[in-house]
């Protein structure tokens, strides 16, 4: 995804076991903060087809 021009950090992977509730909360917090810091996504959005 980064190779196609999506900013680093917008896509994140995590391994969270069903027993790791604390980690889950942390991950969600971190990811939300990171994405908010990046601001709204400008690319790969289609609200209305740009055609003739």
């Amino acid at each position: 995804m980064e190779h196609m021009g999506i900013e680093p950090g917008r896509l994140q992977f995590s391994w969270v076991s069903s027993a790791e509730s604390t980690k889950f909360v942390e991950v969600v917090k971190e990811v939300t903060e990171a994405i908010k810091a990046l601001g709204p996504n400008e690319h790969f959005l289609k609200t209305k087809a740009k055609v003739a």
């Binding site: 196609m4 790969f44 959005l45 289609k46 087809a49 740009k50 055609v51 003739a52």
Partner: peptide
């Protein structure tokens, strides 16, 4: 994916 010539759809196909 949409079937028109919309650039987002074209790019989606290629990626």
């Amino acid at each position: 994916v949409g079937k028109s010539q919309d650039p987002t759809d074209v790019r989606t196909f290629h990626f």
